[in-house]
Computed example of a mutant assay.
Amino acid sequence: MFIARVTGSVVSTQKVETMIGHKLLVVEPFRLDDKERQSLVTTGRTFIAVDTLGAGEDDFVLIAQGSSARLTPETQKLPIDAVIIGIVDQVHIDKFKVYSRD
């Protein structure tokens, strides 16, 4: 599981039947800044994830990837590799709040 920021969406008018009606979002994984450990920084990569919660652009989300992405009731029969399983409200590292949705 990792934290990512929603940076966009994907529109696909032709897809396998089991994927019809599922919202696809572009997500960019973030990690803790290894020097100061007081902020989140991008990893420079992007993924496509199925959104089961109604996340929006610029939201920080929790991503499950690989076979774990197919363990939710909503995704167990989908051919997916990444799913949004949570919308992040806050991230605390040591004594620092490194992210807040407010």
Rank of each mutant, 00 (worst) to 15 (best):
E36D: 07
P29G: 06
V27A: 01
L53M: 06
F30I: 09
S67W: 09
I93N: 10
A49Y: 00
T52R: 05
S9N: 08
R101Y: 03
Q38Y: 07
S67Y: 09
T13Y: 07
T13N: 14
K77E: 11
T46A: 10
Q76R: 14
D58N: 15
G54Y: 01
R70W: 08
S9H: 10
L71G: 04
K97T: 13
D33R: 10
F60I: 10
L24I: 13
I87G: 07
P79C: 02
T18S: 13
I63G: 10
T75M: 03
Q76S: 14
D33E: 11
V16L: 07
S39L: 06
T18P: 00
L25I: 04
V6H: 00
L25G: 00
R31N: 07
G44C: 09
V91I: 15
H22I: 02
T7K: 13
K97S: 10
E74F: 09
T72L: 15
V41N: 05
V26L: 15
S12E: 02
D102W: 02
D59T: 09
R70Q: 14
L71N: 13
L24K: 11
I87M: 05
V10M: 09
S12P: 07
I93Q: 06
T18D: 07
A64N: 08
T72A: 12
H92T: 14
I80P: 02
T52L: 02
V6P: 01
